[in-house]
Design a protein around this nucleic acid. Structure first.
Lengths: 165, 165
DNA sequence: CTGATTGCAAATGCTTTGCACGCCA
DNA sequence: TGGCGTGCAAAGCATTTGCAATCAG
């Protein structure tokens, strides 16, 4: 876990008069061990493998904690389960593009978007704090060549495609 | 209900071989009778007042139908209940700004944002289909003058503020 | 010590579903 | 008439919570 993240977490814990526990430590470590998005249940499975005896409830409670500390962010990918994104520390204002062909999620940063959001918000009389932008798109290669590299990739990696409501 | 909307709904019903029922009619009429966002439960209450004997299940089923027909859109305002936005027919690519001081939601359109999203998506090798942008912000007037016109307005109208997770 | 934290299981709350009846086409 | 649509209540599911035991500071 990035020392800067650890520091921020420690600061938050001190600020709120909370306590450092083995469970919180294991969970936080697992959360930031990959840059992949995950659900509470997925994280619970990961945590359970590395450390035994951590309950689902504690995973949920710790996730809320990390979100409140602004170290972790809930994002909306259109699923019913809440999805968490651990990459906002590295890329504080990144956006998401979701391919509707394969469900693949691509993160990207764009200073133009940041600037525009800032302007729009101010014009409306507000001070922007943060934004979330999701672009849904179809794969251009799949459309023109009939081949979607992401589709193949997602099949190979066995990822589930997005659920429909 | 806007005749254009009615037409689109009828077309969808025909296309899918569905049936026109009194319940679907009442619910669709209620959905598009205001431009306000709403939850399934809120709509159920509204429908129940205008027409008797419509069940919650039918409200849920009809909402899914309208979403599939792309006449209605689910939006993420950070609540746990799904929020529906009936205004995408009039403003196909509008965005949302949410004031964290009063919870007020402002809809706005911006062609600059549309263009930028389009460019970004194409640069990444995709064909953009739709986007959702939410800007969270604080009220500039509240910050500088200590008065938030929206806050007062929302108090007067008795609107509930946003729930915290 | 003392209050924060945890695990467990029960409870919650939104949404979906199975089934029998009713109604559109 | 043939199914699609509906109402009702039960079920599903993700998430939260009450409580007693445990642990950090």
């Amino acid at each position: 876990m990035d020392p800067l993240l650890r520091e921020r977490l420690d600061a938050f814990i001190d600020l709120r008069g909370l306590r450092r526990t083995q469970q919180r430590d294991s969970i936080a470590t697992e959360v930031f061990s990959k840059d992949e998005h995950f659900t509470a249940e997925e994280l619970f499975e990961r945590v359970r493998k590395s450390t035994s005896g951590i309950s689902r409830a504690t995973v949920y409670r710790t996730l809320s904690l990390l979100v409140e500390a602004d170290l972790l962010r809930e994002i909306d990918l259109g699923e019913q389960e809440t999805t968490y994104d651990p990459n906002f520390h590295d890329k504080p204002s990144h956006n998401h593009l979701v391919c509707k062909d394969c469900g693949k999620v691509i993160e990207f940063e764009d200073s133009g978007i940041d600037t525009l959001n800032d302007c729009v918000a101010r014009r409306l009389g507000f001070r922007p704090l943060q934004h979330s932008l999701k672009i849904e798109a179809s794969c251009e290669q799949l459309r023109t060549k009939g081949i979607c590299p992401n589709l193949i990739q997602s099949r190979l990696s066995g990822k589930r495609l997005r659920k429909r409501r």
